[in-house]
Design a protein around this nucleic acid. Sequence first.
DNA 1: CTACAACTTTGAGCGCACTCTAAGTCAAGG
DNA 2: CCTTGACTTAGAGTGCGCTCAAAGTTGTAG
Lengths: 134, 134
Amino acid sequence: MSTKTAYTIQQVAEITGLSGHTLRYYERIGLLSSVVRAANGHRRYTDDTIREIEFLNKLRATGMPIREMQHYAELRRQGQSTLAERQAMLKSHHAVVTEQLRLLQEYLKVIEYKIVLYQKLQEEQQHESTPVGS
Amino acid sequence: MSTKTAYTIQQVAEITGLSGHTLRYYERIGLLSSVVRAANGHRRYTDDTIREIEFLNKLRATGMPIREMQHYAELRRQGQSTLAERQAMLKSHHAVVTEQLRLLQEYLKVIEYKIVLYQKLQEEQQHESTPVGS
DNA sequence: CTACAACTTTGAGCGCACTCTAAGTCAAGG
DNA sequence: CCTTGACTTAGAGTGCGCTCAAAGTTGTAG
């Protein structure tokens, strides 16, 4: 009943959506802690590592720079004494993303407005016989 | 009554948040149509151009690649016959951004969850054996 | 006249986040 | 034994979006 499921790099690539190249890259820049090796030197990923990668993916997708993720990973490695600092990082990132979200929504409205405007212009065009400059 | 207000590149930089370098760059890759020159060859921007730049900024901020913006600008230059295509581009981009927004909100929730988790872990830590103080 | 600041151009350089190449190892199958 | 294919490493290359450098012109102030 032990969760000894060990994934190959190929499998993890499929599961996480990262390429094998990127998985190795993430490991060597210190984003991934402790990837175990098989007898032949090949990487063997655990469920834990996969969950770790999936969280990293969410940080990336929300725009956290690699640099910051490296810092986060470093704190993680230092153990529970860094819980507060990690939490602070997440809070700060949360605020940034929230603001980003607000802006996106605002800009989306402008784009919507423009779509409607283009609609009107096209309708005008069809009701007119002679083209008019914009 | 004519709005003859002509801005220097420096002024436009301040207004739009883009650097002078970037304004020239945008012009040479064809994002900006028709920037008029003063007698000495210096650029003079109109209110119209500023509005154009501000809209481009919104497209950029919502993640539209420069390539796509170039296409959009090219269509603009071709006149009102491209209204439908430009509208289609904006609609497509709108859909992409909306999806992006959805994902961001989802990931934000995961981050929130983690912040709460870290809170709990810290509280546990304080209620346990080891004396505080570092 | 000189100095300086603000612009101009062309083209090179940079930071980020991958992405790929080359050369090598190893285990399994024919 | 030989080939195949999945892996390994270190390091080079790529694409994007700027960003800067160098050299030259122009207009104004002292």
